[in-house]
């Protein structure tokens, strides 16, 4: 952005604005924790009973309940749990009998790598598709891309993943159908094993992001200032670059953040299909085994990521908008 620098006055305006936005995110995150704890920790049946099975005597259950702290009042458990999470101590996994933090820290880097690679590839492709669609509005290219992305958004992830496996692993034998990510794997092996998960995720994310980008750019192209620029004789490429893009930054970044947040949901299916040792497949396991502490932590990480993405998008939008900035 080619904004001239306006140090003090704009800073004085920006800091409270952004500060307010950050606080609001933190408040939402707090409320989210309340929801997750309530739904997963209070409503369902008893975890101690669950762990011990039907044959356990009431005494055994009671003593395990006490051991797990389940006999304490709900609000005490909540404060304890939240305090633990904030300090990085999210409790013990019921099933693995390991600290939740440790299990997650084994998985998190894998998920971040997968998400990172997918995000970079998707953003590049989606921006290209979205912007070229928007500037060719109503043209052949636009309607072709429209139908493609429209279909792709509605495609179940497992269909794309299975088709990918069918074509690239079963028929062509190019890529492994199972993503074995081991710490001692070389970069080449690593990339090969990630190719199919990345491909599947990219398809879904690109479609979503491209559609929203197109909408944001097309909306700007309809504004009177674009007509004015045409009437000044400004070439179209320059209109898009210097007039439309500075105004589209906010909405486009918002579209990117929303689509990337979708990555997390999509990752659940894709990680499971490819046996990818990431956070999402860990969460699915936690659901299957009803491992509540692990489940709660995973859910909190996903929600915090979502909120962080939205926060970044909003801050970018604030910085890009001279009305708010200057």
């Amino acid at each position: 952005m080619s904004a001239p620098e306006k140090p003090q006055s704009s800073l004085a305006k920006l800091v409270p604005l952004i500060g307010k936005r950050v606080l609001s995110s933190l408040l939402t995150l707090f409320l989210v924790s309340l929801v997750i704890f309530t739904v997963s920790g209070l409503l369902p049946g008893d975890a101690a009973q669950e762990l011990l099975g039907q044959s356990a005597t009431p005494e055994q259950v009671a003593s395990l309940r006490h051991e797990m702290g389940l006999d304490r009042p709900a609000h005490v458990r909540y404060v304890d749990w939240l305090g633990g999470i904030v300090r990085g101590n999210a409790g013990m996994s019921y099933v693995a009998n390991m600290p939740v933090g440790q299990i997650i820290s084994n998985r998190l880097p894998n998920s971040l790598t997968l998400a990172g690679i997918t995000a970079v590839i998707s953003t590049v492709i989606a921006l290209t598709i979205g912007i070229s669609s928007a500037i060719n509005r109503g043209g052949k290219l636009d309607s072709m891309l429209n139908i493609t992305t429209l279909s792709l958004v509605a495609m179940p992830e497992f269909l794309i993943a299975t088709l990918g496996v069918l074509v690239f692993s079963v028929k062509l034998l190019w890529l492994p159908s199972i993503a074995l990510v081991t710490p001692d794997a070389s970069w080449g092996q690593m990339l090969r094993s990630m190719a199919l998960p990345v491909f599947s995720l990219t398809c879904v994310v690109v479609a979503q992001m491209a559609r929203m980008t197109r909408a944001a750019v097309a909306d700007q192209l309809d504004r009177p200032y674009v007509e004015m620029a045409k009437l000044k004789g400004v070439p179209f490429s320059r209109i898009v670059l210097f007039h439309v893009m500075p105004n589209a930054v906010g909405p486009v970044v918002n579209a990117m953040a929303l689509s990337l947040s979708y990555l997390m949901g999509g990752a659940i299916i894709v990680e499971t299909i490819f046996n990818f040792p990431g956070l999402a497949s860990l969460m699915v396991n936690a659901v299957t085994s009803r491992d509540m502490p692990l489940l709660q932590s995973c859910a909190m990480i996903f929600c915090a990521t979502y909120l962080a993405l939205m926060l970044v998008a909003d801050i970018v939008a604030i910085l890009a908008n001279p009305r708010l900035r200057a």
Partner: peptide
């Protein structure tokens, strides 16, 4: 709105998983 904002901050598939685990 604040309540709905909270729920919308939980990605839909994650929310569904938590609900399935619970119920």
């Amino acid at each position: 709105s604040r309540a709905m904002d909270t729920f919308i901050s939980i990605p839909s598939k994650i929310f569904a998983l938590v609900l399935v685990a619970a119920f």
